[in-house]
Write a protein that binds this DNA or RNA. Sequence first.
DNA 1: TTATCAATTTCAGAAGAATTGAAGTGGGCG
DNA 2: CGCCCACTTCAATTCTTCTGAAATTGATAA
Lengths: 297, 297
Amino acid sequence: MIKLEALRVFVTVAESGNIKDAADAVGRTASAVSMTLKQLEDEIGGPLFQTDRKNSLTALGNLMLDLGREQIRSFDKSVSIMRAFAHSRIGSLSIASVPSVATNVLPPILQRFLETRPQVQVELFDIDSAQVRRMVESGVADIGIAGESRAGGGVEFTPLFSDRFKLLCKDNHDLCRLDRPVAWSDLNAATLIRNGASDRIEAEDYRQLSARSLITVYNVTSLVAMVKAGLGLTILPSLTMHGAHEGVAALDLADASASRQVGLVERRDVPPSPVAAAFRAFALKEIPALVAGQLGS
Amino acid sequence: MIKLEALRVFVTVAESGNIKDAADAVGRTASAVSMTLKQLEDEIGGPLFQTDRKNSLTALGNLMLDLGREQIRSFDKSVSIMRAFAHSRIGSLSIASVPSVATNVLPPILQRFLETRPQVQVELFDIDSAQVRRMVESGVADIGIAGESRAGGGVEFTPLFSDRFKLLCKDNHDLCRLDRPVAWSDLNAATLIRNGASDRIEAEDYRQLSARSLITVYNVTSLVAMVKAGLGLTILPSLTMHGAHEGVAALDLADASASRQVGLVERRDVPPSPVAAAFRAFALKEIPALVAGQLGS
DNA sequence: TTATCAATTTCAGAAGAATTGAAGTGGGCG
DNA sequence: CGCCCACTTCAATTCTTCTGAAATTGATAA
């Protein structure tokens, strides 16, 4: 059986023009090289060199030099692709994330992640938590970032950080003058605008307030516009409105349980690609730190 | 160092879906296959299968299956090309031959030679002996067929057959009624047309006749036309006019030394390509036999 | 959950292939 | 004509790969 290693030796000899130099180049003795060459000639079925001074090739030798070089080049390239993929230097990464994280957290995280992996292709989808889970479950996204969900399904949740809800209202609202965190009871008289995120709050007092609400707005930009226009106030995770909006105030809530758990969503039983695994580890280490810094400030 | 053989084993396992079948397929034990796989994973830097039941690949495994298959296919193809070339089943063969042989000898020879080598590409040049040597010497032709030459040069001559000269004249010429081979002295009164081939005859009697000749024609067809038109008579190797022309007669010459040696012309010190070597051996065996049959009839 | 069974892995020894250093061969140059 | 250098050959050694038995693992059924 002809081995690629034998071709490597032959090509080196053909390029050196003699066995001694080639032997040095491949780190063997001349006799080892000589035997390899002989074996190769036997297996191919003809002489590769014109004489036993290895400085001129036969027609067969020329053909084998061309083909051999090409095989070696191609094999080495394949191996380097395999290794690059295994070490997550190449590959593609599809991330599905809720908009708050996609907007406020992912940009610096991705930038640093890609600094050492300039060849990785990234796709980022910003969609709501339910769709994040759906995309991960169906395999469209390699990894998701979303709020925690009760139903397990085919996906697994790993917490990254927790994000307290805040009250969003016009900055001239009466509540702004309260010198303490806002209690649910403070909102009895207020007009509450519901949104996709706040529906997750399980406190009974909030549920009752929410049930009375007549407006629901899913898009954050629209929601803030409504609040700014004075249609009412709303409850949002603090990260969602990070970066403060003109004319609206974000007030702390007294109920410490009013928070959402944000974490990674991954497919169960399907191992991540190397890039996805690398991103997972990176996210798990960097996102909590980054968010702590952002929410603390 | 990753070996192509390891990729072969991996591809087989990936295609079988389990180690046992793959081990049977490659003719090894399951444990050998298992170890090869483990080593491959170590060298690539990641797992190839989702579990140790080898029925589902990781993303890395899929990539390696694709790349590995391609490498194996390409390597095997290269090797088969090398072998085919070494065994002269493929390759190209450039033959330079004097017209008489190209016309009367080579067609059946080449046909039989190519019967077992349908992929071999042949080029055939019919030119005079001097140019045959030149083409062989310059490497344009792999092998030549020509009359013997005194000067050695960079080429070597191997006799194939010898070919006696004959006298060509109109079939109503006086000489046709001679009931014996024609002697040089019979031609003293005749008009001789010289040609490229007959200049090789070294007999002094002929040289004198030739020196008196006023016309030289190199092309055989033209030469025959001249003779037929009655311009004179000429001396040609018998093979050259094999297949008799209407209206002209070929008469035996008394001088047995008036013959040419036809043989193979090859480059000295440059080994022939496998096809050329095969053709050389074939020609050396078959051409003398074929010519003996043709000239005998 | 535990028992069972087959596939896979691990291990140590065996077989085989490649490598080495020394001795032998042969072609080219003074 | 003989020396010299490169290559080849040879036998011993080392390294790799393989095997068969035992241990482990994971899936399936009780």
